[in-house]
């Protein structure tokens, strides 16, 4: 039948095993995106996302961060370019072929994006019920374990609207991690939070990365997150990657655009001379 999933060949399995040893988890190459024939929002984005590390993508408003996130998750089809996840280019894949790729990703949206008609428990159980054949008992055990990991077990039977923003974010993280993804993408995780709550979210992301060994991709304009927990930092500026470096190195950059951004963010940069 036409909807039957394609079986993985031995060659593909071998390639996947080899890819697992590659320190580069995702390769983004010449990614271009525009809308309805308008100006290009992404103008050839090229950079690497490192395996089991905290990769941060910074940039000002309108730099193309959100558009890039939508291409990375294949919520949209880019005009051209490639995104290789474990060596597999996800751009030409159709909805069915994307299923195993998407299972590698967990996504934490800016405001959680929990399903507001479901309890926190059902939200976290949702991916398990959709993609596994686990019994109700196994689902319950796994979900409660994740909720306890993120200290939201008490809210299990509440609706998202009945819990605080911080709890929603932790519940969203529990949902993103319940299928044990390899890559976690966070969209503006500290946006709209006060500084204390922002640092708690930073700690949570660092702890999650370390504990579950996931590759983290954090899209943010919060420079504190970069220097608190970042291991690789990429700056998106006017639809291109302006720099790809480490948080330590970025402070010594000669790139005027990066220096201006850092200064505007209140970061003291070393004298470029």
């Amino acid at each position: 039948m036409f909807w039957r999933k394609k079986e993985t060949t031995p060659e593909e399995q071998a390639a996947a095993a080899a890819a697992a040893d590659d320190p580069i988890h995702i390769r983004v190459r010449d990614l271009v995106k525009s809308y309805d024939g308008g100006p290009q929002i992404l103008k050839g984005v090229t950079f690497d996302i490192h395996r089991s590390r905290i990769n941060i993508i910074i940039g000002g408003s309108g730099a193309g961060k959100s558009v890039f996130t939508r291409q990375l998750l294949r919520l949209e089809q880019p005009d051209s370019g490639s995104i290789l996840v474990d060596g597999v280019d996800i751009i030409p894949l159709d909805e069915w072929a994307l299923v195993p790729i998407r299972k590698k990703f967990g996504m934490v949206f800016q405001f959680g994006a929990l399903f507001d008609s479901m309890t926190v428990f059902d939200n976290v159980a949702f991916p398990l019920r959709e993609h596994t054949k686990m019994s109700a008992k196994e689902v319950k055990e796994r979900v409660m374990q994740r909720l306890e990991d993120f200290r939201v077990a008490d809210a299990a039977h509440k609706l998202p609207g009945q819990i605080s923003g911080g709890m929603q974010k932790r519940s969203a993280l529990a949902r993103a991690l319940v299928l044990e993804p390899q890559i976690l993408v966070y969209d503006e995780p500290t946006s709209g939070l006060d500084p204390v709550s922002s640092r708690r979210v930073d700690e949570l992301m660092a702890e999650t990365s370390e504990r579950f060994g996931v590759t983290s991709v954090i899209i943010t304009h919060d420079m504190a997150t970069v220097f608190e927990i970042g291991q690789h930092v990429n700056m998106l500026y006017q639809g291109r990657i302006e720099t790809s470096t480490t948080p330590e190195e970025i402070l010594r950059t000669d790139n005027a655009v990066v220096r201006d951004f850092l200064k505007a963010s209140g970061v003291s940069v070393a004298d470029g001379s």
Partner: peptide
Amino acid sequence: TEIASMRVTNQIDALTTMSVN
């Protein structure tokens, strides 16, 4: 209203990222 709310609060994107059409 329900589906529009889901759209503007990224719940539909969340479904897609969880491989649910």
